[in-house]
């Protein structure tokens, strides 16, 4: 029993260290952001960057898809080619069997699932 407690304790400490790291990272990011604003890092540069990001989001992830097959990609590594119909059918099955609704606003569990 006490071994388990020790394990839990070690894990909590690891989590604490990780959270400290996250806080530090957040502080650093915030500070970097302030400095950029103060240095007046070119608004034009930031403008171009955000325009490019939004462009890529649209052209590569949006728009009408011409082929029925889609790719399941994880970090740009094409892993699985799936026929679109097959995928839609399996999504519906997941929804029905697990009582989950995978809507555009995010997954949610139906009350009956618990």
């Amino acid at each position: 029993m006490s071994d388990q407690r020790k394990q839990v304790q070690r894990r909590r400490e690891a989590a604490a260290r990780r959270r400290d790291r996250d806080r530090e990272a957040w502080r650093a990011r915030n500070q970097a952001s302030q400095e950029r604003q103060e240095r007046g890092v070119s608004r034009a540069l930031r403008d171009r960057d955000v325009s490019l990001l939004d462009l890529v989001d649209r052209l590569l992830d949006g728009g009408v898809v011409i082929h029925g097959d889609i790719t399941l990609a994880v970090a740009d590594v094409d892993l699985v080619y799936v026929g679109l119909r097959a995928l839609v059918a399996s999504v519906e099955t997941i929804e029905r069997d697990a009582g989950v609704s995978l809507s555009a606003s995010g997954p949610s569990l139906k009350a009956s699932a618990l």
């Binding site: 608004r43 955000v50 325009s51 939004d54 462009l55 970090a75």
Partner: peptide, 25 residues
């Protein structure tokens, strides 16, 4: 190459997206 309509973008939160852009392209 500028599509900014309003507001003032800052990149710190989206920095990771920029880094991964090369991969996406």
């Amino acid at each position: 190459r500028s599509k900014l309509l309003a507001g003032d973008p800052d990149f710190t939160p989206f920095g990771n997206e920029l880094d991964r852009l090369d991969g996406a392209l």
